[in-house]
Design a binder for these strands. Structure first.
Lengths: 247, 247
DNA sequence: CGGCTGCTTGAAATGAGTCAACATAGGTGG
DNA sequence: CCACCTATGTTGACTCATTTCAAGCAGCCG
């Protein structure tokens, strides 16, 4: 199943880790070099997915968490009546499937938004490793804890903010995440549709469309279909905070 | 700090655990008896809180998670501009503060809604125990995983449901939780104000008031201020699911 | 007993949704 | 390679659920 016996002997720590995207997440709070290699060995080969392909399905027991290497991914729950609620969009270097970390059942599904590569990380192996590496244990808890905090921020956004603030927050957040991952904070492509954005933010897709136009008319962004250029981060943040209302 | 040396030698497992509310949560998926006692020893003495008293504060590092023994509690985040978003209400036997499980900083605050007793559980001690008790490790992850799932359900509720469905879901959920804890599913007191309910559900408090009246007029509930009696669980669930729309 | 806070109800205002028509891009097959 | 077709996005007009504003009421605490 895993290839723990496989030896790794490169000079550079990063270069020696096949699946850096996930391992990098653990670096900031210091696992030592040996630990990192052990962890890296547990991470399954990347998998290539086409747009729309399922990574894991709500209700199934994958026993894995996942890391995005390239491309992007959305997660969503499906209600009894069949309607979907998008829970998050995941960029390269980010994790998903943490809701299945107890090794039981995923409470949401993950789907590729475009061509994407993802790494699989079997929770079982992680648990075994945790005994040997107390640092990893802590890292894992940190990650989940952050997940909860993110959800709480989202609850606030959905419950208390108007459409303008929601979309501005969404764009500002995307920008910050691209920046954190080494991409441009000013110019990026939306891999998700207007419908997806609306679903995620609790808005009709027409509303999203209208707001994008409004932001453009106010010279806050430039928007050509999927391509977004942020012209005025300051104004965008002010709209997000409700300090600035447009038109 | 903790009283690990303290010996416990009662016959009944439950009777021998001073802080059953938390320990019970771990029972369903089987820690053995010795483990339970060890766990119980780590749980700090109950604390008595008056209405409005703070249990833990957003931004502070308590290093603890908490279990409600009696009374009820709300958790909420405070945004930059000072406005609050209630994240959840917690009944006896339920946990809170899991967002601070990484032993760092709480991303929300907890406050007693009425006179309440709560137990404190230092995460540090838990981590130590986890090494000795692999089962506990798993239990903890399960709990957090469930927390995430609950948040996801809430995201769906806030983003996709109308006011009627939100309130019906809220009441049905409360009822189920009371039942699960051995209280009546039909009759209970709301310890939170209309304002709190509205804040939690992303509604104006006037809307909550109006809906309660509407539910009463439709003979779904009886409502005398804080006292709620559910007359028709079936109808309530149908409203929650959007299968039934009132008036 | 009075004042305060929380609750209820009404009337008016409005933000976002719905419905509908049209535009554009990208993909497919002839 | 072009023409068509379907997806997705845009924009307008109208509707309506929920909010906001406002007034009155009821329970509760000091």
């Amino acid at each position: 199943m895993t290839n723990v016996e496989q030896k790794v002997n490169f000079k550079s720590l990063k270069a020696s880790c096949k699946n850096c995207s996930l391992v990098e997440l653990c670096l900031p709070r210091g696992l030592d070099s040996d630990d990192l290699h052990t962890l890296d060995d547990v991470i399954k080969q990347r998998k290539l997915l086409r747009k729309g392909e399922l990574i894991f399905n709500q209700g199934e027991e994958s026993g894995c968490i996942f890391a995005v290497r390239s491309g992007s991914v959305k997660t969503f729950t499906t209600a009894k009546n069949g309607e979907e609620q998008i829970l998050g969009f995941h960029l390269p270097g980010e994790l998903l499937g943490l809701d299945g970390i107890d090794n039981r059942i995923h409470s949401c599904s993950g789907v590729a938004l475009d061509t994407a590569t993802i790494c699989e990380l079997p929770v079982k192996d992680l648990n075994v490793l945790c005994v040997k590496m107390p640092g990893l244990q802590q890292q894992l808890l940190n990650l989940i804890s952050n997940e909860i905090t993110k959800d709480h921020t989202m609850l606030l956004l959905l419950a208390r903010r108007n459409a303008e603030q929601k979309l501005a927050t969404f764009l500002a957040n995307l920008s910050a995440r691209f920046k954190a991952r080494g991409y441009s904070a000013d110019e990026f492509d939306l891999t998700m549709s207007r419908y997806d954005i609306g679903n995620y933010l609790g808005l009709a897709d027409e509303t999203v469309s209208r707001l994008i136009s409004k932001f453009r008319e106010n010279n806050i962004i430039q928007a050509e279909r999927k391509r977004i250029t942020i012209l005025d981060h300051n104004a965008l943040n002010e709209v997000a905070e409700g300090e600035l209302s447009l038109n």
